[in-house]
Each structure stands twice: as structure tokens, then as C-alpha cells.
Computed example of a mutant assay.
Amino acid sequence: MDNIVTTLDQLQTLKPRFISVTCSNNKNDIEETTLKLAGYINNTLNIPAIAHLPAAYLSAEQVKRILTELNALNIQQVLALRGDIIPTVPCKKDFRYASDLIKFVHIQEPTFKISGACYPEIHPESPDLVSDIHYLKQKVDAGCTQLITQLFFDNDKFFGFKENCALAGINVPIIAGIMPITNRKQALRLIKTTSAHLPKKFLAIFDKYEHDPESLRTAGLAYAVDQIVDLITRGAEGIHLYTMNHAETAINIQKTIGSLFNTNEQPSK
């Protein structure tokens, strides 16, 4: 907790539009940790906080209690997710999909700003693109006012996804999720587990600097910077950095291209 607070204090200097606070699939983690950190961000650092809520692991009564606590903290933003399905962790029965939770929150607290997750390269469990966009439209129709993408490394995939959303009548802001790759372990994990397309340029960086940690970090940050510059230039509505609790990553990016963000387009964390 001390390390996270130190990271948050450093991120405050960047004046982000918001900082999101994730959680594990555990109600105690949400109520005892997520809300505590969100309150610190919102009320001590004076930065808008977004609390993650995993639909599959919360009951309706728990969500009501969490919304009451968020109101008490003067927080009115949530990111409603289904949550990763883990065989060893029992799911609750009230919310099967993220859209169910979004609809419930929207009815309970109509003034809340509800963010939803989206996958520029299709959710791993979706049978096809049409189905994926259909379910995403259900989230928006249920009350989602903003979408934040899963990480991606090919900007053309993102802009193709945006076009498909527009054709489907999805007209809420879509924030581009970027994860700078700064170490070998992180890169290996992504290569093995991510469904995101890994361009030749990305793989070449990993191959060339596989045994040179400092150069891999520098090249990984440079790749993320190139992505962000291209996204902003081509009209992306916002950038969400997956900082993984490492403030220096966001600070370095801000130093390099911070002038590209005006007061209404600050990068989120």
C-alpha cells in the first residue's frame, strides 16, 4: 500500500483526467482496498478516480453498498467489467455480463459516469467481430458513457475498430489503452498470453534487446511514444496508460510528448 501511495503521489504531478483503480475478484479487496485508494486519489490528490467493479463476483446488495460508499467519497465514476472467470473463484448470480451491471448501476445512480471495457481485436471469448460489436452496443445502450480499450500495439487495429463501432451506432468516446513494454518478463508474458497483434517492429525490439534490459526499456518507451503520437494525430479521443503502478513510465512519456495534450486532453492513468 505504501508503494502504491508513493506512485499515486508522483502521478499527481501529471494532472491526469482520471486514475483508475483495479481490483481482484474479491469483494473485500474492493471495499477495503479499491475504495480506500480511490478515496485517496479523489479527495487527497484531487484527481477524479474510477473504481473497477467486476460483475461476475458481486451481488446486487454488494453493488448497492459500494455505490453508497462511493457517493460518500464524492466519487461518481466506475468501470463496469464482467471480470476474468477463474474456475477456483465462485461467481455470483446477479450479474452475468458487464451490461447487466452497467444497467443496474445506471438505474441505481443515474448521474454516475459508467465506463466499459472493449477489445480493438475482439474479446477472446467472442465468436466473431459482429457478435463482439453487438455485445458492446448492449453495454452502451445499458448506460455506458465511455469505453476504455484493452491494450494493443497496432494502431490500425484501433482505428478499424472505431470505424466498426461508428457503423454500429456506438457513439461514446473510446479511450485508447496503451501499455509501454519496459522489461523482458513483461514482454514474454504478453507474447504468450495476449490476443493483441504483435507487429514486426514490436517483435524486432524484443529480439534485438532481449538481453539488454536498459535498451529494451528505452525502446519499449519509444514504441509507446510513437503509438501515442500517431493516435493523437489521427484523432483518438484520449489515452489510457496501463502504468502497472510504475509512475516513472508515465512521467517519461509526459516529458517527451506532454505538449501534445491540451488542458482538455490530459492522459489518464
Rank of each mutant, 00 (worst) to 15 (best):
D94G: 03
L37F: 15
F158D: 06
P48M: 09
T88D: 13
N262Q: 04
Q186L: 03
A60H: 01
V78T: 03
K27S: 08
Q150S: 13
N264C: 08
I239W: 04
F153P: 01
I175P: 00
A51G: 07
P267E: 10
H211P: 10
K157H: 11
K113M: 07
D84K: 10
A204R: 14
H197L: 08
S59H: 09
F153T: 00
I50F: 10
I4H: 11
T13W: 15
A60M: 08
P110N: 11
L216V: 05
F158N: 05
S131T: 07
L151D: 03
C144P: 00
Q266V: 02
Y40V: 06
I181W: 01
R184I: 04
D156R: 12
I174H: 03
Q138H: 03
C118E: 02
V21Q: 09
N74W: 01
I257F: 09
C91Y: 00
S268N: 14
V89Q: 03
P54C: 14
S259Q: 13
A117T: 09
L8N: 12
I4W: 10
L188H: 05
L221C: 13
D100R: 10
I102S: 15
R65W: 09
Y209F: 11
C91S: 01
N252H: 13
N171W: 00
K200F: 07
D94A: 08
N252A: 14
D2N: 15
S215M: 14
P127W: 07
L129F: 07
T194I: 06
K137Q: 02
L11P: 11
N74Q: 09
I47H: 06
D94Q: 11
I133P: 00
V225W: 09
A55V: 12
I170S: 02
T44C: 08
P120S: 13
A222D: 03
T193K: 14
K27D: 02
K103F: 00
R234M: 02
I47W: 10
T68Q: 14
V172Q: 00
I122R: 14
L231W: 10
P173D: 12
R184T: 09
A187F: 14
A222V: 01
L81S: 02
R234E: 07
N3H: 12
F261P: 02
D226S: 08
K185F: 06
H197E: 06
Q108F: 03
L53H: 00
F206G: 03
G39A: 04
G235Q: 07
K269G: 08
E265K: 15
D128M: 12
N28I: 04
Q10E: 15
I133L: 11
I205L: 12
I75N: 06
L58E: 06
K36R: 14
C165R: 00
M244I: 10
V105T: 01
D207G: 06
Y223H: 05
Q138E: 10
A196F: 11
E61Y: 12
K36M: 14
L190E: 00
T34V: 04
N252W: 05
H106W: 03
G83W: 05
I4N: 12
D29N: 12
R189T: 07
D132T: 05
L221R: 13
F206N: 06
T182L: 01
